[in-house]
Design a binder for these strands. Sequence first.
DNA 1: TCTTTGTTTTACCGATTAGTTATATAATGA
DNA 2: TCATTATATAACTAATCGGTAAAACAAAGA
Lengths: 110, 110
Amino acid sequence: MDPLSQTLAALADPTRRAMLLRLSHGDATVGELGAPFRLSQPAISKHLKVLQTAGLITRRKAAQTRPCHLERARLADLDDFMQHFRAVTEGQLDQLATYLANIQSTGETE
Amino acid sequence: MDPLSQTLAALADPTRRAMLLRLSHGDATVGELGAPFRLSQPAISKHLKVLQTAGLITRRKAAQTRPCHLERARLADLDDFMQHFRAVTEGQLDQLATYLANIQSTGETE
DNA sequence: TCTTTGTTTTACCGATTAGTTATATAATGA
DNA sequence: TCATTATATAACTAATCGGTAAAACAAAGA
């Protein structure tokens, strides 16, 4: 499966999205990430494996725990894809670019 | 299933993403949307139904055809979700805002 | 009316998914 | 060494998914 499809499939689950949101505030262990959910521990491990396989998180070793870390690269890739649909926003960015060009050239000539 | 999960699940398929990209350039019929793919016609209809159920497209009637139209609202919802992960980008936007404020005030005072 | 074109629906299949329980592995600490 | 804590793996199950072929439906045109 291509990386973007993997990313989107991983995100298409509210439990995994909640885990990522938690990780956006800082690293957390498997136990900490699973605590909010009424799920068995293997289910938590499975969700984290999906996120890891998608490249959305990495893990390190710390004693018995395996703290997880959010990797933003794949989210950035998704952002790039989303860019294709930002017709209105693109228009606004064009306006901003024009605005920037205007005030910049104004500043240079004065 | 919650709307955001439905949106992401619908996007987690390259065929459906390609269809949406096509629709971002304008409405298209079922036949037009299916043409690029080596898939049976019912498979195309199924993919479009997934997109429609997720609220990503709507369809109207035109003679025998059923032209599809991209609906950007759910993509905007996804964008809102993505916002939670834009820590670095937010910093860059802050810098841009500062930059804009600077050159703007400079321009005003001169 | 009959045929053609465009699309949907139905019924089916194999693969994948999300969950479970039970078991294994790994590191710590008594 | 032995028990505890943290996590992963294995084996299983029910449900969902992406595809197919065959049939039905809808509108247009001869």
